[in-house]
Design a protein around this nucleic acid. Structure first.
Length: 581
RNA sequence: CGGGGCAUGGCUCAGCCUGGUAGAGCACCGUCAUGGGGUGGCGGGGGUCGAAGGUUCAAAUCCUUCUGUCCCGACCA
């Protein structure tokens, strides 16, 4: 490889390496990746949300960066490096100096000039491009960097998974028009797939909300792991994947059943929740309706009722998009509830309400359902839309649940948890317009640039990889990002010149082949060495001992194998090379 | 920002209630044994008990303030 950016780690002996493994875990480490990163001696905490990367951890980090660099370069992006410290003026120009909250760490220099620590670099790159690119002939262009970011998180946690200082690969593309942006977006989409595939991670690209950053098209890349902070909805029958908050809940198929029961008031004393009502009346939550009162958007209707099936959850993102509802979604106060429904929160129902009703599609499809009677301690059974109460506006206002039909009509929804490691956006002209970044087009007219931005949380990828690849004894690195490919564990080397000679020779030969080897030359008992090597997750383990030397064999075990194998010493290196690919 | 917990050697923690000589395990150093799964013995080094103030003859221990840190909530790549 002649790539000047190529990161090639060296082979090492453990006696030369700060192998800072520990048996115990600090109390603050809650999730497995954080615990293992500390125990394996990859990171150490300096202060809240600030971590030092030890040699072993840094090797992994560099591997991840390296894969990203190679794939970004192959995709035609150019690497740059922008400052961490950024002048306030630029942020004032984009409007984010005011928009950003306390997460933006603001500082002053000795001349009392305002600066911030960059949580992201849209302003800086856009400033650069507006100065350097003047002609449409220079477009499209895509610039990326691997740089430290700082976000003053309210509550940093989970080690490097959510730290305040972290390393991010961020890329920004510039285009004359939308079509060009979309083409590059697609290239980045494919590039991200290659990057995470090369890292050996189980991931999904999911449709995402564009959030506060604005813009149209957006995908998040999630590494699947039970400890993930985000819930993702997948289809069992297609490639569909979306954030649970975003996935559309379709209306139930078929027509609503005809009313079969008479509406009846029943006493339900001291019941406040759907579960309590269901237990008392011996019914399924799916036959009930819950009514939530929230603040309305216009003064004529300060309170609006949301009606959902009893077993469903309201989705505030969907609700906030409705023009009738105040954003952010806010529940009505107890006084407002009394005023609008004349009862406590546990007994509200749609029947007889005079405020606007917004009914979820699933709730609107019910017949003979149970709901609150707007009379504290009473519910109604056998309620039916139209006959007993007008359904008002029917809309999608709930979270999808497992088993719902997929929004694309193929298969059903399955929900898994994921860790967001990448995010790609079609930004549009939000920043280019604010900073007046334009070029002359074919007609010699100034034209505002279209932008895309593409991030990968490099440090988070390392933690996510561990969340997905570990067992009871430690980390199980995918080969591509392991700190070392191979470890050599000699048995009683400090007593046996034969073992020492054989191990040293193998080490030298593997090194010469360009393989990253960790040679455990410590005078430790075998158990200690085995445990350490498994903890730090080296994929391929070679054990050299008197036993094998007598038999002409060398022991090999992959980190994921349950049993070791004895291979012939003759041709061992070739056999190992075949394993390494 | 609201609520709660914690702060004692590098790490995990006991001691605090009921004030009176600072402890254990792990880690570290030396040494002997052991040598295919965190081995055992012996001997060591290391802590102004988060900080400041107060009460007391005497404070790790009681009181006050501050700081740090963790958890829950709101918020967020």
């Amino acid at each position: 490889m002649n790539n000047p950016y190529e990161y090639k780690a060296n082979s090492m002996k453990t006696s030369q390496l700060l192998l800072a493994t520990t048996r115990e875990t600090p109390a603050e480490a809650e999730i497995i990746s954080h615990q293992l990163m500390i125990r394996a001696g990859m990171i150490r905490r300096l202060a809240g949300g600030l971590y030092t990367w030890l040699p072993l951890g840094l090797r992994v980090l560099r591997k991840v960066e390296n894969i990203i660099r190679q794939e970004m370069d192959n995709a035609g992006a150019q690497e740059v490096l922008m400052p961490v410290v950024q002048p306030a003026e630029l942020w004032e120009e984009s409007g984010r100096w005011q928009q950003y909250g306390a997460e933006l760490l603001r500082i002053e220099d000795r001349h009392q000039r305002a600066f911030c620590l960059g949580p992201t670099h849209e302003e800086v790159i856009t400033d650069l491009i507006r100065k350097e690119i003047r002609s449409y002939k220079q477009l499209p262009a895509n610039f990326y960097q691997v740089q430290t970011k700082f976000r003053d998180e309210i509550r940093p946690r989970f080690g490097v998974m959510r730290s305040r200082e972290f390393i991010m690969k961020d890329a920004y593309s510039f285009h004359l028009d939308r079509a060009s942006l979309e083409a590059t977006y697609q290239v980045m989409y494919d590039t991200y797939h290659r990057i995470f595939e090369r890292m050996g991670l189980n991931f999904r690209a999911v449709q995402a909300d564009t959030g506060s950053i604005g813009g149209d098209g957006s995908h998040e890349f999630h590494v699947l792991a039970d400890s993930g902070e985000d819930a993702i909805a997948f289809s069992t029958g297609s490639e569909f994947a979306a954030n649970v908050e975003l996935a559309e809940a379709l209306a139930p198929s078929g027509t609503r059943p005809a009313p079969g029961l008479v509406m009846t008031e029943v006493a339900t004393p001291k019941t406040h929740t759907i579960e309590e009502v269901c237990a008392l009346l011996k019914i399924d939550a799916k036959q009930t309706v819950k009514t939530l009162l929230v603040q309305g958007a216009d003064e004529a209707h300060p309170v609006v009722a949301l009606v959902l099936r009893g077993d469903h959850e309201v989705n505030d993102i969907k609700v906030e998009k409705l023009p009738q509802i105040a954003s952010p979604m806010t529940f009505a106060s107890a006084e407002q509830i009394q005023q609008a429904a004349g009862c406590d929160a546990g007994s509200i129902g749609p029947v007889g309400l005079t405020i606007p009703l917004i009914v979820d599609r699933a709730a609107a499809h019910l017949a003979d359902f149970v709901c609150g009677a707007n009379k504290t301690g009473y519910h109604l059974t056998g309620v039916n839309w139209e006959r007993d109460v007008a359904p008002g506006l029917v809309a999608d206002i709930r979270n999808v649940v497992e088993g719902d039909p997929s929004p694309d009509g193929k298969g059903t929804i399955q929900i898994r948890r994921g860790i967001e490691v990448g995010h790609i956006f079609q930004l549009g002209d939000k920043y280019s317009k604010a900073l007046n970044a334009n070029v002359l087009n074919e007609n010699s007219r100034a034209q505002i640039l279209e932008m895309g931005c593409y991030g990968i949380g490099v440090t988070r990828v390392v933690a996510a990889a561990i969340e997905q690849n570990h067992d009871d004894t430690g980390i199980m690195w995918p080969d591509a990002i392991a700190p070392f490919q191979v470890c050599i564990v000699p048995m009683q080397m400090h007593k046996s010149p034969r073992v020492k000679q054989a191990a040293e020779q193998l080490y030298t030969e593997l090194k010469a082949k360009g393989i990253e080897v960790l040679f455990d030359d410590r005078n430790e008992r075998p158990g200690v060495m085995f445990n350490d090597m498994e903890l730090i997750g080296i994929p391929h383990r070679i054990v050299i001992g008197e036993r094998g030397l007598d038999e002409g064999t060398i022991e090999y075990k992959h980190r994921r194998d349950s049993e070791s194998q004895n291979w012939a010493a003759e041709g061992f290196i070739e056999a190992l090379m075949a394993k390494l690919v």
